[in-house]
Design a protein around this nucleic acid. Structure first.
Lengths: 209, 209
DNA sequence: CATTTGAGTGAACAGGTGTGCACTCACAGT
DNA sequence: ACTGTGAGTGCACACCTGTTCACTCAAATG
């Protein structure tokens, strides 16, 4: 074996291998259908060595959620750079573009999130749900900075944010099983139009009981 | 054994038992994690007898999708009785009420649909996707009958239908892991407001390239 | 009444599963 | 240089998996 690596470096390397290989496997089947032996073999270690890194498959799953959510949050931070934007529509289109790019460079992670959002293990589901709610709240704050909706009530802002996140999430899911780039292009165009529709609705929204 | 049943009646009864027990099991875990032996035992038959009814678990899964979708379509047909409705908003609220009622009386089926829409087996995913697309098309036709949007282009109608279905689906998913009726009430209220937002957007939608 | 049909049985198979245990042996700390 | 640590090994266990095969035996068909 290669002795040019420190012990702890080697450890975190196989740990990462376990996570990566699991993501790869989850691309085609659900997390719940994976076996410990399977991911261990994929990572190039013997089944029992798995326990040196995770207490169980569920434990590994939760770690996977946390990692994926870190990506999601970084994405949101990137999107917030366009905070100075004036009009809502171009901002939305821009945000969608960012989402698309992030999905494409982190396919496995997003696929995992979409897969496990409603499926399988309840602990994982709860973790995703919590993070998503946080995501909505942050988007609501961003929306409040857009001149057109600066006087909206907080509750209405959150509602709009939920709506937008729902549309975006649907787009992510669709993106993940699109075949070919012309499929992508149409999907993006449709999503943009949907967002415009939503924004139009937001514009003519008059706060009434 | 009870001889008061015809042979084919008994057969379809155990077939239904297989489907029902599978739905019960799927309430807590994903379909992919179920084993043939497990559902066979739950249905009270020996594993090999399973094959008298389904060629495989995937086959059973697809049947489950079809059944659940029949429920969904019946729901749509019920909703279509209000086709004579004039304004879009009350119609939407009414439709939502119907959806809520259907979800409550067919929890297991809807839970299955939500779970497997993005999860697990690709054949099942495809089946759900196909049926959902059909659902959107029918809703688009319904929308075209609303006076306010009678002159819309088909493509725009479908877009609006997609948007509405997405919002409704999200509501179904939320409804399925809500705890308590006051949770439900708030959720329904929020969804209604979201639908109003979407409809407002549809109203001020001017068909431009 | 005699015969065919077919839902359900039970044993057997080859293989996969999680986990316990005793082990190696290269590295890290003294 | 001596020793302890700990990532990774290999074997073993008891159990669960899908599928095969030859079978029963009551209902349906003639």
């Amino acid at each position: 074996m290669d002795a040019s690596e420190s012990r702890s470096a080697r450890k975190s390397r196989t740990r990462q291998a376990l996570l990566d290989e699991t993501l790869d496997l989850v691309a085609e089947r659900s997390f719940a259908s994976l076996s410990l032996r399977e991911v261990a073999k994929a990572a190039g270690i013997v089944p029992t060595a798995f326990y040196r890194h995770f207490a169980s498959m569920d434990d590994l799953g939760v770690t996977l959620v946390e990692d994926a959510m870190r990506v999601l949050r970084r994405m949101l931070r990137d999107g917030r750079r366009d905070l100075a934007a004036r009009a809502a529509v171009p901002t939305a289109a821009n945000s969608l573009a960012i989402v698309v790019r992030q999905v494409r460079t982190n396919e496995a992670q997003f696929r995992f999130l979409v897969r496990e959002q409603h499926g399988g293990v309840s602990e994982i589901r709860r973790a995703i749900d919590t993070e998503l709610r946080l995501f909505v709240k942050e988007l609501a704050i961003d929306l409040s900075r857009i001149p057109e909706m600066v006087r909206w009530k907080a509750d209405d802002l959150e509602l709009a944010a939920e709506l937008i996140v729902t549309v975006m999430l649907q787009a992510v899911a669709d993106l993940l099983d699109s075949r070919g780039p012309e499929d992508d292009a149409e999907l993006i165009a449709r999503t943009e139009r949907k967002l415009v529709m939503v924004i139009l609705g937001m514009n003519s929204w008059r706060t009434e009981p």
